[in-house]
């Protein structure tokens, strides 16, 4: 089930990358693909009827879903925001140089120079 959601989200991200001309929209599409991949990896560790992997008063003995994908995704999300900020700052520089973020206008301006 969640597999299909993740696949369609990857599709939406790639669709945005192919059709949109604004560079900001490319950044948004990349973020969508990032989220979709995170959902997919988490869904690979889910087991029906088991609990979240934390020992507590309510789950004193182990009856847990797979904790390994969660550990991988935890760091990937924070790195995602780091790379998003780097991409956004690069876009600021692109806008300062060309005065636009449209891919085709940037290409014509580049050809004129």
């Amino acid at each position: 089930m969640v597999y299909y959601i993740a696949f369609i989200l990857i599709g939406v991200g790639i669709y945005g990358f192919l059709t949109q001309k604004n560079l900001f929209k490319h950044l948004v599409s990349l973020t969508i693909v990032d989220t979709a991949v995170n959902i997919f990896i988490i869904s690979l560790g889910y087991i029906e009827g088991k609990e979240a992997p934390i020992y507590s008063k309510y789950t004193p003995i182990a009856n847990f879903v797979d904790p390994l994908p969660q550990a991988l995704v935890l760091t990937a999300i924070v790195i995602g925001v780091g790379t998003l900020a780097l991409g956004a700052s690069l876009l600021i520089k692109v806008y300062e140089k060309y005065g636009t973020l449209d891919v085709e206008q940037i290409a014509t301006k580049e050809a004129e120079e």
Binding site: N38, E51, Q70
Partner: peptide, 22 residues
């Protein structure tokens, strides 16, 4: 999907900081 650690991180990052950065 029983992943509270990831959920709390995504809530802090995705809804708060990523939007703010953009």
């Amino acid at each position: 999907m029983k992943a509270p650690d990831v959920a709390i991180t995504e809530a802090a990052v995705g809804a708060g900081l990523a939007t703010a950065v953009l």
